[in-house]
Amino acid sequence: MGTTQLEAVQEPKYWHLKTVLNDALDSEFEVGEILPNERDLAARFGVARATLRQALEQLELEGRLQRRRGVGTTVAPPRMGVAVGPSSDVWPGAGRDAWRTIGCVEAVAPGSVAALLGTGPDETVHTIRRERVMQGQPVATELLYVPPVSVPGLSAMLSPAAHAPAVLRELHLLELEGEDRAVELGSARAEDAKQLDRLPGAPVLVVTTRYFAQGRVAAAAVATYRADTCRLTFGHSGAIEVTHHQPDSDRQAS
Rank of each mutant, 00 (worst) to 15 (best):
residue 51 T to M: 00
residue 205 L to Q: 15
residue 211 Y to D: 07
residue 97 D to W: 07
residue 160 P to V: 04
residue 181 R to Y: 11
residue 33 E to L: 02
residue 230 C to I: 02
residue 133 V to L: 09
residue 253 A to E: 10
residue 100 R to T: 15
residue 123 E to V: 06
residue 38 E to M: 06
residue 121 P to M: 06
residue 184 E to I: 08
residue 129 R to A: 10
residue 21 L to D: 04
residue 193 A to R: 09
residue 183 V to A: 07
residue 252 Q to C: 01
residue 69 R to G: 06
residue 216 R to E: 01
residue 250 D to H: 11
residue 202 A to Y: 10
residue 18 K to P: 07
residue 131 E to S: 13
residue 214 Q to E: 00
residue 9 V to R: 09
residue 56 L to R: 02
residue 149 V to Q: 15
residue 144 L to I: 05
residue 62 E to V: 06
residue 90 V to I: 10
residue 5 Q to M: 01
residue 229 T to P: 08
residue 177 E to W: 14
residue 220 A to N: 08
residue 95 G to R: 01
residue 188 A to H: 00
residue 243 T to S: 15
residue 129 R to Q: 15
residue 117 L to K: 10
residue 133 V to A: 00
residue 71 V to K: 10
residue 12 P to R: 14
residue 246 Q to N: 04
residue 28 E to T: 02
residue 252 Q to M: 10
residue 204 V to D: 05
residue 50 A to D: 14
residue 103 G to W: 12
residue 122 D to K: 05
residue 160 P to Q: 05
residue 38 E to D: 09
residue 30 E to K: 14
residue 164 A to W: 03
residue 79 R to T: 10
residue 146 V to W: 14
residue 172 H to A: 15
residue 233 T to Y: 06
residue 247 P to F: 09
residue 119 T to R: 03
residue 94 A to S: 13
residue 249 S to Q: 07
residue 250 D to M: 05
residue 200 P to N: 08
residue 116 L to W: 14
residue 16 H to A: 15
residue 31 V to A: 13
residue 45 F to C: 07
residue 102 I to C: 04
residue 74 T to R: 03
residue 121 P to F: 00
residue 33 E to H: 10
residue 184 E to C: 04
residue 137 Q to P: 03
residue 182 A to F: 11
residue 242 V to L: 15
residue 45 F to L: 04
residue 66 Q to D: 08
residue 46 G to L: 05
residue 23 D to A: 12
residue 240 I to A: 08
residue 144 L to Q: 06
residue 171 L to W: 13
residue 131 E to N: 11
residue 101 T to P: 01
residue 161 A to N: 09
residue 70 G to S: 02
residue 167 V to D: 05
residue 26 D to R: 14
residue 152 P to Q: 11
residue 145 Y to C: 00
residue 53 R to M: 09
residue 36 P to L: 07
residue 44 R to T: 00
residue 43 A to S: 13
